[in-house]
Design a binder for these strands. Structure first.
Lengths: 145, 145
DNA sequence: ACAACAATTGACCATAATTCTCAATCTCAT
DNA sequence: ATGAGATTGAGAATTATGGTCAATTGTTGT
């Protein structure tokens, strides 16, 4: 299986785009964590390697990385978009804690099956889907309140 | 069963808030449609009745209307938040057409049951949830491309 | 009905996330 | 190595949304 870096390189070549240093740097910091980071988070991290990089470049790089199929946008309702891994990662849903912001990833093949049934019934062709459950996580519940 | 207007009035009174003309006007235009409108849509509609109303007032009114349990925010990924009915309306999920923007509301008690199972398994206390499937609707599929 | 007080409004400003502009710089096929 | 074309960085522009505050309105007790 190809590495993420190779996938990006290939996507760039196939689309007449250039493999710039910045795009690889952004990809690297994105790959290094499994957390759901904002553009700003990624910007701060890349700056440690390349202090001269611009915020707009990180925005642009993440769009390309998404288009290449390596990342996916996720919105947890806190005002900024976040990114999560898409390559070599199973499709999943999210439990989002309203107290501490923790995001728990969950899989449910049964739900996916019902989603298929649902779209078929409406003659709707699905492209992507998102399911999020907001509430209180185990840890915050224990802490009381 | 109480009317939406009564629910709002009661919520306002219980919370030391005032029943202003503007709040009722915003509620009225919101109640008149089943569409998913943005604050700006609602603003344009209310202006027909009250041309002197301010945009910020519509924002504030919709927040109160949500807090009163009459509306719920919904985000279909087009950059602005939209509102949908919550009072006298069953919980549902959305199929969102990426071509025409149409939003189809669907119910699935089976999925809700699986969601419960999922949260229980993670000892997570759910407060609210959202499931959206993006893709191509029946009509757009027929039109080709 | 009225006065007093607190809540609300409207106009405008503030903010935050994201995108655009454009001259300078970099990438890559040749 | 070079030229065509893509990308970058800096800052300005944009968009959705919320805050500020003096003027106005709704409510409550009399």
């Amino acid at each position: 299986m190809k590495s993420a870096k190779t996938v990006l390189r290939q996507y760039l070549k196939n689309n007449g785009l250039l493999a710039s240093k910045q795009r690889e740097q952004v990809l690297n910091v994105f790959l290094k964590t499994e957390k759901h980071l904002t553009v700003d988070d990624l910007y701060e991290l890349v700056r440690k390697k390349n202090p001269r990089i611009g915020l707009a470049t990180v925005y642009r790089a993440m769009r390309v990385i998404c288009d290449a199929g390596l990342a996916r946008e996720a919105d947890f309702g806190d005002g900024s978009k976040r990114f999560e891994h898409k390559y070599k990662h199973q499709h999943h849903h999210h439990l989002v804690c309203l107290k501490c912001g923790r995001v728990i990833e969950v899989m449910s093949p049964e739900i996916e099956k019902l989603q298929q049934k649902l779209t078929k019934k409406h003659n709707f062709t699905p492209v992507r889907d998102t399911m999020k459950i907001f509430g209180t996580c185990r840890k915050c519940k224990r802490k009381g309140e």
